[in-house]
């Protein structure tokens, strides 16, 4: 069953320097339970596409459906959780209250809020940090808290826009492993923007390679890696072969320039 479906999607921004085509003829189907990575150089429209799915940007052409609805309807139905590049936790709220923010807004009862905060903090391995303030946590822990915030209301779709871009390699590896576990446990459909090839290959069931000016899809790679992925799978021949194909796709996009 397809959760997200884009057909002939176009998006042109009107800027002071004239129109800029951010997305051209994007066609993509994401199935339920897919882990889809969007990879490409800056300006390739990967974040823009994710924001279109979230109803934060509006395509100027083509069709896009999320859970069978328009992106705006899906947003109002709270169909997805969104993780931004920065954790963006409220400094005046404890970790627990930050995770409870969407629940408060969506009108969950106090008891249910407490229960879900506890459950999602356990899920991202932050149990016991509920009463801490964001500044008392490391960058990686803050980003985990922001993932918990996106998971708290249990939407089927999780959209992540370069969530680990600002973190160092070691923390990033650990969080990648955790995201995979999280995905296996929750069976969510995940859209993940990155510009790291190993990250994309390691995480995804489907890798969408994009290229800039105008932003478009140049390759969609179905990963043949097993669902169970220890970190050292990155040294396997299969992994390297997929990474190679991604790199080729990125290079092909650049030759067009």
């Amino acid at each position: 069953m397809s959760v997200i479906e884009a057909k002939g999607l176009n998006l042109t921004f009107q800027t002071n320097d004239g129109p800029v085509q951010a997305l051209r003829d994007v066609n993509l189907t994401i199935e339920k339970g897919d882990f889809v990575s969007f990879i490409g150089p800056s300006g390739c429209g990967k974040t823009t596409f994710l924001r279109c799915i979230a109803g934060l940007e509006h395509p100027t052409g083509g069709t896009l459906s999320v859970n069978g609805m328009t992106p705006d309807e899906a947003r109002m139905a709270r169909a997805y959780g969104y993780v931004f590049q920065a954790a963006g936790l409220y400094p005046w709220r404890t970790i627990g209250r930050n995770v409870a923010l969407p629940l408060e807004i969506m009108g969950y009862s106090k008891a249910e809020q407490a229960e879900r905060v506890k459950k999602t903090l356990d899920l991202v391995d932050l149990a016991g940090f509920e009463k801490k303030f964001p500044w008392q946590l490391s960058g990686g822990m803050q980003q985990r808290a922001s993932i918990a915030r996106a998971l708290a209301f249990d939407a089927d779709i999780l959209l992540m826009d370069e969530p680990f871009g600002a973190l160092d390699e070691i923390v990033r590896d650990k969080l990648n492993e955790e995201v995979l576990k999280l995905w296996a446990r929750t069976e969510k459909t995940i859209g993940f923007v990155t510009h790291s090839i190993p990250e994309a290959v390691y995480l995804s069931t489907k890798i969408v390679v994009m290229s800039p000016r105008p932003g478009r899809i140049t390759d969609v790679i179905e990963s043949t890696l097993p669902k169970e992925r220890p970190l050292d799978i990155r040294d396997s021949a299969e992994f390297i072969a997929i990474a190679h194909r991604v790199r080729e796709g990125l290079r092909a996009g650049h030759v067009d320039d």
Binding site: G81, G88, Y90, W92, L101
Partner: peptide, 27 residues
């Protein structure tokens, strides 16, 4: 922008945006 977008992803009302984000941030 990011914080305002976050509230949009929750489909928060303007008054929720005021009481939960703008007012505390202004202190």
């Amino acid at each position: 922008h990011m914080q305002l977008d976050l509230l949009r992803t929750y489909n928060a009302s303007p008054s929720q945006g005021f009481w939960k984000l703008r007012l505390p941030a202004s202190m």
